[in-house]
Design a binder for these strands. Structure first.
Lengths: 196, 196
DNA sequence: AGGCAATCTTGACGCCGTAAAGTTAACTTG
DNA sequence: CAAGTTAACTTTACGGCGTCAAGATTGCCT
Protein backbone atom coordinates (compact mmCIF):
# COMPACT_ATOMS: atom_id res chain seq x y z
CA UNK A 1 0.00 0.00 0.00
CA UNK A 2 3.00 2.33 -0.08
CA UNK A 3 2.39 5.22 -2.41
CA UNK A 4 5.64 6.40 -3.92
CA UNK A 5 6.36 8.20 -7.16
CA UNK A 6 6.18 5.06 -9.25
CA UNK A 7 3.86 2.90 -7.21
CA UNK A 8 0.35 4.08 -6.69
CA UNK A 9 -0.72 1.26 -4.42
CA UNK A 10 -3.92 0.09 -6.03
CA UNK A 11 -4.16 1.85 -9.32
CA UNK A 12 -6.37 -0.70 -10.99
CA UNK A 13 -9.16 -0.15 -8.51
CA UNK A 14 -8.61 3.62 -8.47
CA UNK A 15 -9.00 3.79 -12.25
CA UNK A 16 -12.25 1.85 -12.20
CA UNK A 17 -13.59 4.05 -9.41
CA UNK A 18 -12.62 7.16 -11.36
CA UNK A 19 -14.35 5.77 -14.42
CA UNK A 20 -17.56 5.13 -12.50
CA UNK A 21 -17.49 8.69 -11.18
CA UNK A 22 -16.97 10.11 -14.65
CA UNK A 23 -19.87 8.06 -15.97
CA UNK A 24 -22.17 9.29 -13.24
CA UNK A 25 -21.17 12.89 -13.75
CA UNK A 26 -21.07 13.19 -17.51
CA UNK A 27 -22.47 10.04 -19.06
CA UNK A 28 -20.76 7.68 -21.44
CA UNK A 29 -19.16 10.44 -23.50
CA UNK A 30 -17.31 11.80 -20.48
CA UNK A 31 -15.40 8.57 -20.00
CA UNK A 32 -11.83 8.64 -21.28
CA UNK A 33 -8.60 6.91 -20.41
CA UNK A 34 -6.77 10.14 -19.82
CA UNK A 35 -9.41 11.56 -17.51
CA UNK A 36 -9.49 8.37 -15.46
CA UNK A 37 -5.72 8.53 -15.17
CA UNK A 38 -5.77 12.19 -14.16
CA UNK A 39 -8.45 11.58 -11.56
CA UNK A 40 -6.41 8.75 -10.12
CA UNK A 41 -3.42 11.10 -9.92
CA UNK A 42 -1.36 9.27 -12.47
CA UNK A 43 0.10 9.90 -15.89
CA UNK A 44 -1.95 9.33 -19.01
CA UNK A 45 -0.13 6.19 -20.06
CA UNK A 46 -0.27 4.42 -16.72
CA UNK A 47 -3.56 2.58 -17.33
CA UNK A 48 -1.98 0.63 -20.17
CA UNK A 49 -0.14 -1.49 -17.62
CA UNK A 50 -3.38 -2.66 -16.01
CA UNK A 51 -5.94 -2.78 -18.80
CA UNK A 52 -5.95 -3.68 -22.45
CA UNK A 53 -6.54 -0.17 -23.72
CA UNK A 54 -9.78 1.70 -23.43
CA UNK A 55 -11.95 -1.34 -24.21
CA UNK A 56 -10.25 -3.19 -21.39
CA UNK A 57 -10.88 -0.40 -18.93
CA UNK A 58 -14.46 -0.14 -20.07
CA UNK A 59 -14.93 -3.84 -19.50
CA UNK A 60 -13.54 -3.58 -15.98
CA UNK A 61 -15.83 -0.63 -15.27
CA UNK A 62 -18.76 -2.51 -16.75
CA UNK A 63 -18.14 -5.43 -14.39
CA UNK A 64 -18.42 -3.08 -11.44
CA UNK A 65 -21.41 -1.26 -12.92
CA UNK A 66 -23.14 -4.57 -13.51
CA UNK A 67 -22.70 -5.37 -9.85
CA UNK A 68 -24.25 -2.05 -8.84
CA UNK A 69 -27.06 -2.71 -11.29
CA UNK A 70 -27.70 -6.10 -9.77
CA UNK A 71 -27.86 -4.68 -6.25
CA UNK A 72 -30.26 -2.05 -7.52
CA UNK A 73 -32.54 -4.70 -8.96
CA UNK A 74 -32.37 -6.83 -5.83
CA UNK A 75 -33.36 -3.89 -3.65
CA UNK A 76 -36.23 -2.99 -5.96
CA UNK A 77 -37.54 -6.55 -6.00
CA UNK A 78 -37.43 -6.93 -2.22
CA UNK A 79 -39.24 -3.76 -1.30
CA UNK A 80 -42.94 -3.13 -1.58
CA UNK A 81 -45.57 -5.74 -2.19
CA UNK A 82 -44.27 -9.28 -2.46
CA UNK A 83 -46.73 -11.14 -4.65
CA UNK A 84 -45.24 -12.75 -7.72
CA UNK A 85 -46.85 -10.12 -9.93
CA UNK A 86 -45.63 -7.32 -7.72
CA UNK A 87 -42.09 -8.65 -7.59
CA UNK A 88 -42.03 -8.85 -11.36
CA UNK A 89 -43.16 -5.26 -11.65
CA UNK A 90 -40.74 -4.22 -8.92
CA UNK A 91 -37.91 -5.71 -10.92
CA UNK A 92 -38.94 -3.80 -14.00
CA UNK A 93 -39.38 -0.59 -12.08
CA UNK A 94 -35.87 -0.97 -10.66
CA UNK A 95 -34.53 -1.55 -14.17
CA UNK A 96 -36.17 1.62 -15.43
CA UNK A 97 -35.16 3.65 -12.39
CA UNK A 98 -31.56 2.54 -12.80
CA UNK A 99 -31.66 3.80 -16.36
CA UNK A 100 -32.99 7.15 -15.19
CA UNK A 101 -30.60 7.50 -12.27
CA UNK A 102 -27.47 5.98 -13.80
CA UNK A 103 -27.70 6.32 -17.56
CA UNK A 104 -23.94 6.31 -17.92
CA UNK A 105 -23.62 3.00 -16.12
CA UNK A 106 -26.38 1.45 -18.19
CA UNK A 107 -24.63 2.63 -21.34
CA UNK A 108 -21.32 1.09 -20.36
CA UNK A 109 -23.02 -2.15 -19.33
CA UNK A 110 -24.95 -2.67 -22.53
CA UNK A 111 -22.75 -0.73 -24.93
CA UNK A 112 -19.89 -3.16 -24.94
CA UNK A 113 -19.14 -6.66 -26.06
CA UNK A 114 -22.08 -8.24 -24.31
CA UNK A 115 -22.73 -9.05 -20.69
CA UNK A 116 -21.24 -12.51 -20.98
CA UNK A 117 -17.75 -11.03 -21.10
CA UNK A 118 -18.24 -9.13 -17.84
CA UNK A 119 -19.21 -11.92 -15.49
CA UNK A 120 -16.18 -13.40 -13.79
CA UNK A 121 -17.26 -17.04 -13.90
CA UNK A 122 -17.37 -19.31 -16.89
CA UNK A 123 -21.00 -18.85 -17.91
CA UNK A 124 -23.31 -15.93 -17.56
CA UNK A 125 -25.72 -18.07 -15.59
CA UNK A 126 -24.02 -17.23 -12.31
CA UNK A 127 -24.29 -13.45 -12.53
CA UNK A 128 -26.42 -11.91 -9.83
CA UNK A 129 -28.73 -10.04 -12.17
CA UNK A 130 -29.51 -13.23 -14.05
CA UNK A 131 -30.33 -15.02 -10.84
CA UNK A 132 -32.74 -12.27 -9.85
CA UNK A 133 -34.44 -12.35 -13.24
CA UNK A 134 -34.75 -16.11 -13.11
CA UNK A 135 -36.11 -16.14 -9.59
CA UNK A 136 -38.68 -13.43 -10.27
CA UNK A 137 -39.81 -15.09 -13.48
CA UNK A 138 -39.99 -18.58 -12.03
CA UNK A 139 -43.62 -18.36 -10.77
CA UNK A 140 -44.74 -17.58 -14.30
CA UNK A 141 -43.10 -20.55 -15.95
CA UNK A 142 -45.61 -23.27 -16.67
CA UNK A 143 -44.76 -26.95 -16.45
CA UNK A 144 -44.33 -27.26 -20.18
CA UNK A 145 -42.81 -23.84 -20.76
CA UNK A 146 -39.20 -23.01 -21.40
CA UNK A 147 -38.24 -20.66 -18.62
CA UNK A 148 -35.74 -18.92 -20.90
CA UNK A 149 -38.63 -17.80 -23.09
CA UNK A 150 -40.37 -16.06 -20.20
CA UNK A 151 -37.10 -14.48 -19.10
CA UNK A 152 -36.30 -13.26 -22.59
CA UNK A 153 -39.77 -11.75 -22.92
CA UNK A 154 -39.51 -9.85 -19.66
CA UNK A 155 -35.97 -8.74 -20.34
CA UNK A 156 -36.76 -7.55 -23.85
CA UNK A 157 -39.82 -5.62 -22.75
CA UNK A 158 -38.20 -3.79 -19.85
CA UNK A 159 -34.94 -3.23 -21.67
CA UNK A 160 -36.63 -1.72 -24.68
CA UNK A 161 -38.95 0.38 -22.58
CA UNK A 162 -36.11 1.69 -20.43
CA UNK A 163 -33.97 2.72 -23.38
CA UNK A 164 -36.84 4.36 -25.22
CA UNK A 165 -38.11 6.04 -22.08
CA UNK A 166 -34.72 7.37 -21.02
CA UNK A 167 -34.10 8.80 -24.47
CA UNK A 168 -37.45 10.58 -24.33
CA UNK A 169 -39.43 8.62 -26.91
CA UNK A 170 -42.41 8.41 -24.58
CA UNK A 171 -42.26 12.05 -23.60
CA UNK A 172 -40.09 13.73 -20.99
CA UNK A 173 -39.13 11.01 -18.49
CA UNK A 174 -39.55 13.27 -15.48
CA UNK A 175 -43.33 13.29 -15.47
CA UNK A 176 -45.68 10.68 -14.12
CA UNK A 177 -44.86 7.03 -14.64
CA UNK A 178 -47.85 6.53 -16.89
CA UNK A 179 -45.83 5.03 -19.72
CA UNK A 180 -44.22 2.56 -17.35
CA UNK A 181 -47.52 1.33 -15.97
CA UNK A 182 -48.98 1.16 -19.46
CA UNK A 183 -46.22 -0.93 -20.93
CA UNK A 184 -45.90 -3.12 -17.85
CA UNK A 185 -49.54 -4.06 -18.17
CA UNK A 186 -48.33 -6.49 -20.76
CA UNK A 187 -46.65 -8.39 -17.94
CA UNK A 188 -50.07 -9.30 -16.62
CA UNK A 189 -50.48 -11.57 -19.60
CA UNK A 190 -47.16 -13.30 -19.41
CA UNK A 191 -46.69 -17.02 -18.93
CA UNK A 192 -49.02 -18.90 -16.60
CA UNK A 193 -50.57 -16.46 -14.20
CA UNK A 194 -49.60 -17.56 -10.70
CA UNK A 195 -51.87 -17.55 -7.69
CA UNK A 196 -51.90 -14.11 -6.07
CA UNK B 1 -24.31 21.77 -60.32
CA UNK B 2 -20.99 23.25 -61.40
CA UNK B 3 -18.15 21.67 -59.50
CA UNK B 4 -15.28 24.05 -59.19
CA UNK B 5 -12.51 24.24 -56.65
CA UNK B 6 -14.63 26.02 -54.08
CA UNK B 7 -18.09 24.82 -54.99
CA UNK B 8 -18.81 21.19 -54.67
CA UNK B 9 -22.32 21.32 -56.05
CA UNK B 10 -24.29 19.44 -53.45
CA UNK B 11 -21.96 18.90 -50.55
CA UNK B 12 -24.67 18.57 -47.95
CA UNK B 13 -26.15 15.54 -49.62
CA UNK B 14 -22.72 14.09 -50.41
CA UNK B 15 -21.69 14.29 -46.76
CA UNK B 16 -24.81 12.51 -45.60
CA UNK B 17 -24.32 9.81 -48.22
CA UNK B 18 -20.71 9.39 -47.15
CA UNK B 19 -21.82 9.11 -43.56
CA UNK B 20 -24.35 6.41 -44.37
CA UNK B 21 -21.67 4.45 -46.22
CA UNK B 22 -19.27 4.74 -43.30
CA UNK B 23 -21.96 3.53 -40.91
CA UNK B 24 -22.71 0.51 -43.07
CA UNK B 25 -19.05 -0.37 -43.45
CA UNK B 26 -17.72 0.17 -39.97
CA UNK B 27 -20.60 0.82 -37.60
CA UNK B 28 -21.15 3.84 -35.46
CA UNK B 29 -17.52 4.13 -34.37
CA UNK B 30 -16.38 4.53 -37.97
CA UNK B 31 -18.38 7.72 -38.43
CA UNK B 32 -16.34 10.91 -38.23
CA UNK B 33 -16.60 14.39 -39.66
CA UNK B 34 -13.19 14.21 -41.25
CA UNK B 35 -13.82 10.88 -42.95
CA UNK B 36 -17.13 12.10 -44.33
CA UNK B 37 -15.38 15.16 -45.68
CA UNK B 38 -12.57 13.12 -47.21
CA UNK B 39 -15.03 10.73 -48.84
CA UNK B 40 -16.91 13.67 -50.32
CA UNK B 41 -13.61 14.98 -51.71
CA UNK B 42 -13.54 18.06 -49.58
CA UNK B 43 -11.41 19.54 -46.82
CA UNK B 44 -12.05 18.53 -43.24
CA UNK B 45 -13.50 21.89 -42.24
CA UNK B 46 -15.99 22.14 -45.08
CA UNK B 47 -18.85 20.36 -43.28
CA UNK B 48 -19.00 23.14 -40.72
CA UNK B 49 -20.71 25.36 -43.31
CA UNK B 50 -23.58 22.92 -43.74
CA UNK B 51 -24.06 21.26 -40.35
CA UNK B 52 -23.80 22.31 -36.77
CA UNK B 53 -20.74 20.25 -35.98
CA UNK B 54 -20.70 16.50 -35.64
CA UNK B 55 -24.04 16.33 -33.80
CA UNK B 56 -25.63 18.24 -36.66
CA UNK B 57 -24.23 15.90 -39.25
CA UNK B 58 -25.31 12.91 -37.22
CA UNK B 59 -28.82 14.30 -37.04
CA UNK B 60 -28.96 14.77 -40.79
CA UNK B 61 -27.68 11.23 -41.30
CA UNK B 62 -30.20 9.94 -38.78
CA UNK B 63 -33.04 11.55 -40.71
CA UNK B 64 -31.97 9.66 -43.81
CA UNK B 65 -31.39 6.44 -41.88
CA UNK B 66 -34.81 6.75 -40.32
CA UNK B 67 -36.30 6.94 -43.78
CA UNK B 68 -34.47 3.79 -44.83
CA UNK B 69 -35.62 2.12 -41.63
CA UNK B 70 -39.21 3.06 -42.37
CA UNK B 71 -39.04 1.63 -45.88
CA UNK B 72 -37.54 -1.51 -44.45
CA UNK B 73 -40.44 -1.88 -42.03
CA UNK B 74 -43.02 -1.15 -44.70
CA UNK B 75 -41.58 -3.83 -46.97
CA UNK B 76 -41.50 -6.34 -44.14
CA UNK B 77 -45.11 -5.63 -43.19
CA UNK B 78 -46.39 -5.95 -46.73
CA UNK B 79 -44.78 -9.25 -47.61
CA UNK B 80 -45.88 -12.66 -46.45
CA UNK B 81 -49.09 -13.46 -44.71
CA UNK B 82 -51.45 -10.50 -44.26
CA UNK B 83 -53.52 -11.31 -41.20
CA UNK B 84 -53.37 -8.73 -38.43
CA UNK B 85 -51.28 -11.08 -36.31
CA UNK B 86 -48.95 -11.83 -39.20
CA UNK B 87 -48.50 -8.16 -40.07
CA UNK B 88 -47.61 -7.42 -36.48
CA UNK B 89 -45.00 -10.15 -36.47
CA UNK B 90 -43.77 -9.05 -39.90
CA UNK B 91 -43.20 -5.58 -38.51
CA UNK B 92 -41.19 -6.93 -35.63
CA UNK B 93 -39.21 -9.25 -37.85
CA UNK B 94 -38.33 -6.32 -40.08
CA UNK B 95 -37.24 -4.33 -37.04
CA UNK B 96 -34.96 -7.11 -35.90
CA UNK B 97 -33.63 -7.78 -39.37
CA UNK B 98 -32.81 -4.11 -39.81
CA UNK B 99 -30.80 -4.26 -36.61
CA UNK B 100 -28.89 -7.26 -37.88
CA UNK B 101 -28.31 -5.88 -41.37
CA UNK B 102 -27.76 -2.21 -40.54
CA UNK B 103 -26.52 -1.98 -36.97
CA UNK B 104 -24.73 1.27 -37.66
CA UNK B 105 -27.88 2.93 -38.93
CA UNK B 106 -29.88 1.72 -35.95
CA UNK B 107 -27.21 3.10 -33.63
CA UNK B 108 -27.31 6.52 -35.24
CA UNK B 109 -31.10 6.57 -35.23
CA UNK B 110 -31.52 5.70 -31.56
CA UNK B 111 -28.22 6.98 -30.22
CA UNK B 112 -29.01 10.65 -30.63
CA UNK B 113 -31.32 13.21 -29.21
CA UNK B 114 -34.47 11.24 -29.78
CA UNK B 115 -36.45 10.51 -32.91
CA UNK B 116 -38.63 13.56 -32.48
CA UNK B 117 -35.77 15.79 -33.58
CA UNK B 118 -35.29 13.90 -36.83
CA UNK B 119 -38.74 14.10 -38.34
CA UNK B 120 -39.11 17.13 -40.58
CA UNK B 121 -42.64 18.07 -39.58
CA UNK B 122 -43.78 19.63 -36.38
CA UNK B 123 -44.72 16.52 -34.44
CA UNK B 124 -43.39 13.02 -34.61
CA UNK B 125 -46.84 11.75 -35.47
CA UNK B 126 -46.26 12.23 -39.18
CA UNK B 127 -43.13 10.13 -39.50
CA UNK B 128 -43.53 7.12 -41.73
CA UNK B 129 -42.35 4.58 -39.17
CA UNK B 130 -44.89 5.84 -36.66
CA UNK B 131 -47.66 5.54 -39.20
CA UNK B 132 -46.68 1.94 -39.91
CA UNK B 133 -46.59 1.09 -36.23
CA UNK B 134 -49.95 2.71 -35.66
CA UNK B 135 -51.57 1.01 -38.61
CA UNK B 136 -50.26 -2.43 -37.71
CA UNK B 137 -51.31 -2.03 -34.09
CA UNK B 138 -54.75 -0.65 -34.85
CA UNK B 139 -56.55 -4.02 -35.09
CA UNK B 140 -55.43 -4.82 -31.56
CA UNK B 141 -56.75 -1.67 -29.97
CA UNK B 142 -60.01 -2.29 -28.17
CA UNK B 143 -62.80 0.24 -28.02
CA UNK B 144 -61.85 1.37 -24.55
CA UNK B 145 -58.08 1.01 -24.96
CA UNK B 146 -55.56 3.74 -25.48
CA UNK B 147 -53.89 2.94 -28.75
CA UNK B 148 -50.67 4.53 -27.54
CA UNK B 149 -50.42 1.87 -24.87
CA UNK B 150 -50.52 -0.94 -27.40
CA UNK B 151 -48.02 0.83 -29.60
CA UNK B 152 -45.66 1.45 -26.71
CA UNK B 153 -45.86 -2.19 -25.67
CA UNK B 154 -45.03 -3.45 -29.14
CA UNK B 155 -42.29 -0.91 -29.64
CA UNK B 156 -40.67 -1.62 -26.28
CA UNK B 157 -40.75 -5.36 -26.81
CA UNK B 158 -39.25 -5.38 -30.29
CA UNK B 159 -36.78 -2.61 -29.54
CA UNK B 160 -35.44 -4.34 -26.47
CA UNK B 161 -35.31 -7.70 -28.15
CA UNK B 162 -33.50 -6.31 -31.19
CA UNK B 163 -30.83 -4.54 -29.14
CA UNK B 164 -30.25 -7.51 -26.87
CA UNK B 165 -30.27 -9.95 -29.76
CA UNK B 166 -27.89 -7.92 -31.91
CA UNK B 167 -25.44 -7.56 -29.04
CA UNK B 168 -25.49 -11.31 -28.54
CA UNK B 169 -27.35 -11.58 -25.25
CA UNK B 170 -29.52 -14.38 -26.60
CA UNK B 171 -26.64 -16.26 -28.16
CA UNK B 172 -24.95 -15.69 -31.49
CA UNK B 173 -27.50 -13.90 -33.68
CA UNK B 174 -26.63 -15.86 -36.79
CA UNK B 175 -28.34 -19.08 -35.79
CA UNK B 176 -31.98 -19.96 -36.01
CA UNK B 177 -34.55 -17.33 -35.12
CA UNK B 178 -35.70 -19.27 -32.10
CA UNK B 179 -35.27 -16.33 -29.73
CA UNK B 180 -37.30 -14.11 -32.01
CA UNK B 181 -40.21 -16.50 -32.22
CA UNK B 182 -40.06 -17.09 -28.49
CA UNK B 183 -40.18 -13.44 -27.53
CA UNK B 184 -42.74 -12.57 -30.17
CA UNK B 185 -45.10 -15.14 -28.72
CA UNK B 186 -45.91 -12.46 -26.21
CA UNK B 187 -47.51 -10.50 -29.04
CA UNK B 188 -50.21 -13.17 -29.24
CA UNK B 189 -51.50 -11.91 -25.94
CA UNK B 190 -51.50 -8.24 -26.74
CA UNK B 191 -54.59 -6.04 -26.73
CA UNK B 192 -57.87 -7.39 -28.01
CA UNK B 193 -57.18 -10.32 -30.25
CA UNK B 194 -58.63 -9.49 -33.66
CA UNK B 195 -60.48 -11.90 -35.87
CA UNK B 196 -58.05 -13.97 -37.91
C1' DA C 1 24.64 -6.56 -2.86
C1' DG C 2 23.25 -7.43 -7.50
C1' DG C 3 19.85 -8.29 -10.90
C1' DC C 4 15.35 -8.26 -12.49
C1' DA C 5 10.64 -7.41 -13.23
C1' DA C 6 6.89 -4.53 -12.25
C1' DT C 7 5.30 0.15 -12.16
C1' DC C 8 4.88 4.66 -13.65
C1' DT C 9 6.64 8.92 -16.47
C1' DT C 10 7.85 11.30 -20.52
C1' DG C 11 7.56 12.18 -25.21
C1' DA C 12 5.81 11.45 -29.64
C1' DC C 13 2.48 10.09 -33.35
C1' DG C 14 -1.80 10.24 -35.82
C1' DC C 15 -6.72 11.01 -35.60
C1' DC C 16 -10.40 13.67 -33.91
C1' DG C 17 -13.68 18.04 -33.50
C1' DT C 18 -13.49 22.85 -33.71
C1' DA C 19 -12.30 27.74 -34.50
C1' DA C 20 -10.06 31.61 -37.12
C1' DA C 21 -8.33 33.56 -41.09
C1' DG C 22 -7.49 33.46 -45.93
C1' DT C 23 -8.93 32.32 -50.89
C1' DT C 24 -11.93 31.67 -54.68
C1' DA C 25 -16.33 31.63 -57.09
C1' DA C 26 -20.92 33.20 -57.78
C1' DC C 27 -24.44 36.43 -57.12
C1' DT C 28 -26.14 41.17 -56.60
C1' DT C 29 -26.35 45.83 -57.49
C1' DG C 30 -25.70 50.30 -59.57
C1' DC D 1 -20.48 45.62 -67.45
C1' DA D 2 -17.76 46.63 -63.24
C1' DA D 3 -17.64 46.84 -58.22
C1' DG D 4 -19.01 45.07 -53.98
C1' DT D 5 -20.90 41.46 -51.28
C1' DT D 6 -21.91 36.96 -49.86
C1' DA D 7 -21.38 32.08 -49.83
C1' DA D 8 -18.37 27.97 -50.24
C1' DC D 9 -14.29 25.96 -49.40
C1' DT D 10 -9.16 25.71 -47.90
C1' DT D 11 -5.45 26.27 -44.84
C1' DT D 12 -3.56 26.54 -40.46
C1' DA D 13 -3.70 25.87 -35.72
C1' DC D 14 -5.20 24.21 -31.06
C1' DG D 15 -6.38 20.96 -27.51
C1' DG D 16 -8.03 16.30 -26.40
C1' DC D 17 -7.97 11.58 -27.44
C1' DG D 18 -5.85 6.47 -27.66
C1' DT D 19 -1.65 4.29 -28.30
C1' DC D 20 3.20 3.12 -28.68
C1' DA D 21 8.26 3.36 -27.42
C1' DA D 22 11.77 4.52 -24.36
C1' DG D 23 13.45 5.84 -19.95
C1' DA D 24 13.35 6.25 -14.84
C1' DT D 25 12.22 4.50 -10.27
C1' DT D 26 10.87 1.05 -7.02
C1' DG D 27 10.43 -3.29 -4.65
C1' DC D 28 11.35 -8.09 -4.66
C1' DC D 29 14.21 -12.17 -5.05
C1' DT D 30 18.38 -14.64 -5.04
Amino acid sequence: MTKTKHHHGNLKEALVTAGLALLEEGGIDALSLRKCAARAGVSHAAPAHHFDGLPGLKSAIAVEAFGIFSSYLQTAVDEGEQSAQARLKNLCRGYMQFGLDHGGLLAVIFGGAGLASYVPGAGKEEAHAYLILREVCAPFVGDHDDKRVIEAQVWSLIHGFTLLYVSGEFGPPHGQDGPFEAVMDLLNRIGNRPAP
